[in-house]
Write a protein that binds this DNA or RNA. Structure first.
Length: 930
RNA sequence: GCGGAUGUGGCGGAAUUGGUAGACGCGUCAGACUUAGGAUCUGAUGUCUUCGGACGUGUGGGUUCGAGUCCCUCCAUCCGCACCA
């Protein structure tokens, strides 16, 4: 009788739920282990086979660690705020909470049937007021803190006020927005509103007028990581640049820590590299260029201050604030036209026109502060307002963009760096700039003959001595825009008094989402929350109408899991001290710059304010690969309802069409099923292969409905059971690599599960395990397997563990082993992978408790010891035959034995061997003259 | 353009410090049992072969007794960034 997975899997899932088998305690003498999955957005489409890949891997680790005696925290929840439910609400009027609740139920059902060992008592939902209270609470803390660059941590704004009272702004080295410096006396003379305005330049959550990514189709602004190639990541709508007043988080203050800490993290090199790029550190200098005839200077940022003498013009970004002052009656029109032009061009067009040189001369000149050279000031959109100071000193000889610009506008080009052995050629002859990262400085007064590195150091000293600039580090990372003009998100705990924002008192949290009549913006273009009645404080002050973005709720959820039902605190100090950080975090690499950056920032801030004991939240991070679809195709003869089989398709003029993968087995089309698939194919005709079968083409593509290649896990679990499904997902290949889903292979794993079951049962299906003593061979295969699986789980190499289980079960099956001393440890070892069948067998072995906490067997080296080894014998590196020899034989004896072997004579010929290499327990290689 | 990763049978993929290439599984072929097979079991299965062997881990070279693994060159694919001064 075969294994009845339907009945048995249900039985144990119910058992786990009823007994709260996986409930984790915050107090324990056991060592802790925190395994976390990136929580899902509960979409209407439900899970597909790609989602559970990471969950299965983390579940195996969680279960394995429990068996190894760890107190394991393995929670799950939902990232439940988000655009799809809101878009649906706009279309249908259904409250997003209703849609979300429905989708969550479906997710939960799908998750439950896979047999995960989550502690569901710790579930969190970002849209639950009991949860988002703490998102709001953290926002208020961010609002009330500033970043001290000298202390390298966040400090309360109350302390900043004291510093201003005492010394004004001079002594403060903070991450801030620019403002005019002031003295203590000035500070005290400012009005309340003026003081608030100043403080806003320092707060870690701040309101400011900035250039934002505005997405008209979604009616909201987006953060940089939510925009890809000028389109919104969600929905693919065009995005434009717009100046708006928005909340931002000052993540830039943490740029250096975010960058430096990467070295300490056990994350994949690729993700760390993506984050390094995103942070984009560059060392250089800011240099002040006076504007001729004006009381103004333009600050430029450069990574190559050593080329200062080669600067022959300056370029400002069109959005640069000084541009207004440079307008004169003569050039006003030209400048405005140019600015208008670059503003109207979408991001997309700007990118497409990279190579086209454009710009406009302002009619003004800057003065090079080291040699007094007057250089023309241009405006051009190849200079970005958001990077550096939004202004550059152009060095056309050594920068390709500046070079192209100089050629286009016929500006001088002066070489200031050369190779030591290079003949200097007139720059007029050059076809391109010489982007010299090393070399010797020429034409540069004091710094002539220095090499680039020295020259940079020297020139920065000069700049600082003369007070005409300073050395600095610049970051590409931008502050995170934190407001969204949407409904389905966390309301800001902020009200306005005389136009200035103030935080709500903690006792007023959570500030719950109000009911609205419609989920659209108002007629005046205000966000949906402006529709709410009485959206004010008790005193009548208006509340903020934007909501927080998707990453708000996901930035700190891993802390809430530590103490999810605490209504007094975000999480208790004790809970945090015990669980500390996430030991293993699994999720997709699409979150490399978004979630993983914000979460680290969030965690660092909470660390700074003394909430937590670890600065970095995720010690080890694994990115599971995506599962791609495997599509099938049929070939329709153009203009006919006739289909040609794969190998004959070239004989006709055909058109390739996707066909539902459920109608295809082993690439052979079920013709009858195909005819019934869609009415138009009812009378279709077919030109099959010569054996009468219709063969389909195939290709690996993204899994999507329109390609008819979506594999639904529910169907597979119905057909094969959860244990088989879990094993197969793991067997597919390394967890981190992308791989195509091919349902065919699941049969092999299904066979394995049945063979495994048969090990413990006789042919009639009766449980059959004996107390006989195992022999050396049986112990050897068991302990080999224990060893391999332990090592594999450490490396998260689950595909090779499954192989090892197959090898082990095949071998024990051949030996007809029925011995408890072998089979009992084996079932514990298999249980993290296939927990249902393992529980059932464990139960039949006579245990009344769950297998989830059974002690994981250790391996004993003694059982693995061999007394002989089958040496591969090579001649000139080519393996010719194998010879079994005892392991205690000396090298000389091995050499002798091999050379005396009759098979050697053939390869030796009549000459003695030139050399014999013997590596004990590895190989014998004999070198013969050719 | 810059940075990162990956290239192994028909397919998914294995291969400690350089030491038997292709484990395990799918598929395919043959056989057994069957009324039947998309069930089960057994065996074969990298390519070519004059059956001696030869060739084989993207390409070309190098180091080595020995290279999928180390070094150099080039090619392809995927991912990230991209006017970042």
């Amino acid at each position: 009788m075969d294994y009845n997975f339907n009945e048995i899997e249900k039985k144990w899932q119910d058992f786990w739920a009823e007994n709260k088998t996986f409930k984790a305690e915050n107090k324990s003498d056991k060592p802790k282990y925190y395994v976390l999955d990136m929580f899902p957005y509960p979409s209407g489409a439900g899970l597909h086979v790609g989602h559970p890949l990471g969950y299965i891997a983390s579940d195996i680790v969680a279960r394995f660690k429990r068996n190894e005696g760890f107190n394991v925290l393995h929670p799950m929840g939902y990232d439940a705020f988000g655009l799809p439910a809101e878009q649906y609400a706009i279309q249908t009027g259904t409250h997003p909470a209703v849609t979300t609740e429905k989708n969550i139920k479906r997710y939960r059902r799908q998750l439950d049937q896979i047999g995960f060992s989550f502690d569901w008592d710790r579930e969190v939902r970002t849209c639950d007021p009991g949860y988002y209270k703490w998102t709001q609470w953290t926002f208020v803390r961010l609002f009330e803190h500033w970043y001290d660059l000298d202390w390298d941590k966040a400090r309360p704004v109350s302390e900043l006020k004291k510093i201003f009272d005492k010394d004004g702004s001079k002594e403060v080295n903070a991450a801030k927005n620019d403002h005019e410096p002031f003295t203590a006396e000035q500070w005290k003379s400012f009005s309340e509103t003026e003081q608030q305005q100043i403080l806003m330049h320092y707060r870690l959550a701040y309101l400011s007028e900035t250039l934002v990514n505005w997405c008209p189709a979604l009616g909201t602004v987006l953060a940089n990581d939510e925009v890809k190639d000028g389109y919104s990541e969600r929905g693919g709508h065009p995005v434009e640049q717009k100046k708006m007043k928005q909340w931002s988080l000052r993540i830039r203050a943490y740029a250096e820590r975010l960058l430096n800490n990467l070295d300490k993290l056990n994350w994949s090199e690729s993700i760390k590299e993506i984050q390094r790029n995103w942070i984009g550190q560059s060392e250089g200098a800011v240099i002040y260029f006076p504007v001729k005839g004006k009381e103004k200077t333009i600050d430029v940022f450069t990574t190559r201050p050593d080329t200062l003498y080669g600067s022959t013009f300056m370029v400002l970004a069109p959005e640069h604030e000084i541009v207004d002052e440079l307008k004169t009656e003569d050039n006003k029109h030209k400048i405005e036209e140019y600015i208008e032009r670059s503003k109207n061009r979408s991001e997309r067009e700007r990118l497409a026109e990279v190579k086209e040189v454009s710009g406009v001369f302002t009619g003004h000149y800057g003065v090079n502060p080291v040699n007094g050279r007057e250089v023309p000031i241009y405006i051009a959109d190849y200079v970005l307002s958001g990077y550096g100071t939004g202004a550059i000193m152009a060095v056309p000889a050594h920068d390709s963009r500046d070079f192209a610009f100089a050629r286009h506008f016929d500006l001088p080009i002066i070489q200031v760096v050369k190779n030591p052995d290079e003949q200097v050629v007139d720059t007029a002859q050059w076809n391109d700039s010489y982007d010299a990262k090393e070399g010797v400085i020429i034409n540069s007064d004091f710094i002539n003959d220095l090499d680039v590195e020295e020259a940079i150091r020297r020139i920065i000293d000069i700049l600082e001595e003369k007070n005409i600039g300073y050395g600095t580090v610049n970051y590409r990372l931008r502050d995170a825009i934190f407001s969204r003009q949407r409904y389905w998100g966390e309301p800001f705990p902020i009200y306005y008094k005389e136009g200035m924002p103030y935080p709500l008192d903690d006792s007023k949290l959570p500030l719950e989402l109000p009911e609205v009549d419609e989920y659209k913006p108002t007629k005046e273009g205000k966000p949906p929350l402006a529709r709410a009645k009485h959206w004010t404080t008790e005193e009548g002050y208006p509340l903020e109408t934007s909501t927080m973005p998707g990453f708000a709720g996901s930035s700190g959820y891993y802390y809430r899991y530590m103490d999810p039902n605490n209504d007094q605190e975000y999480f208790s100090n004790e809970a945090n001290q015990y669980w500390r950080d996430v030991d293993l975090y699994l999720g997709g690499d699409e979150h490399a710059t978004g979630h993983l950056m914000y979460a680290r920032f969030w965690a660092m801030f909470l660390y700074d304010i003394g909430m937590t004991v670890e600065e970095e939240p995720f010690k080890r991070l694994i990115n599971q690969g995506k599962i791609q679809g495997r599509s099938n195709f049929v070939y329709r003869i153009v203009g006919e309802n006739k289909f040609v089989s794969y190998h004959k398709r070239k004989e006709y003029k055909t058109q390739r069409m996707h066909v539902d993968i459920n109608l295809v087995h082993n690439d052979i089309l079920d013709i009858e099923a195909f005819k019934n698939w869609m009415p138009e194919f009812k009378d279709a005709e077919f030109i099959p292969e010569d054996d009468g079968k219709y063969v389909c083409g195939w290709e690996v593509e993204k899994m999507s409905k329109s390609k008819y290649n979506v594999q639904n896990p529910d169907d597979l679990i119905d057909e094969y059971g959860a244990d088989t499904f879990r094993l197969y997902e793991m067997f597919l290949g390394p967890i981190e690599s992308h791989k195509p889903w091919d349902t065919q292979g699941i049969e092999g794993v299904s066979r394995f599960i049945r063979k495994f079951w048969r090990l413990y049962h006789d042919e009639q299906g009766n449980f059959d395990v004996s107390d006989e003593k195992p022999n050396a061979d049986e112990l050897k295969i068991l302990h080999q397997t224990i060893k391999k699986v332990k090592e594999d789980i450490d490396k998260l190499s689950f595909n090779t563990s499954v192989s090892q289980f197959m090898i082990c079960v095949n071998e024990l099956g051949e030996k007809k082993t029925k011995k408890r001393q072998i089979l009992e440890p084996l079932v514990i070892l298999v249980s993290p992978f296939a927990p249902h069948i393992a529980e059932e067998i464990w139960n039949r072995l006579g245990h009344s408790d769950t297998i989830s906490y059974a002690e994981m067997p250790g391996y004993n080296e003694d059982y693995l010891k061999e007394s002989s080894f089958e040496y591969p014998v090579s001649f000139n590196g080519k393996m010719r035959f194998k010879k079994e020899l005892p392991l205690d034989m000396s090298k000389e004896e091995i050499e002798k034995a091999v050379l005396e072997d009759e098979r050697s004579a053939k390869y030796l010929g009549d000459k003695p061997p030139k050399k014999v290499i013997v590596v004990p327990k590895r190989i014998v290689n004999i070198v013969v003259a050719k």
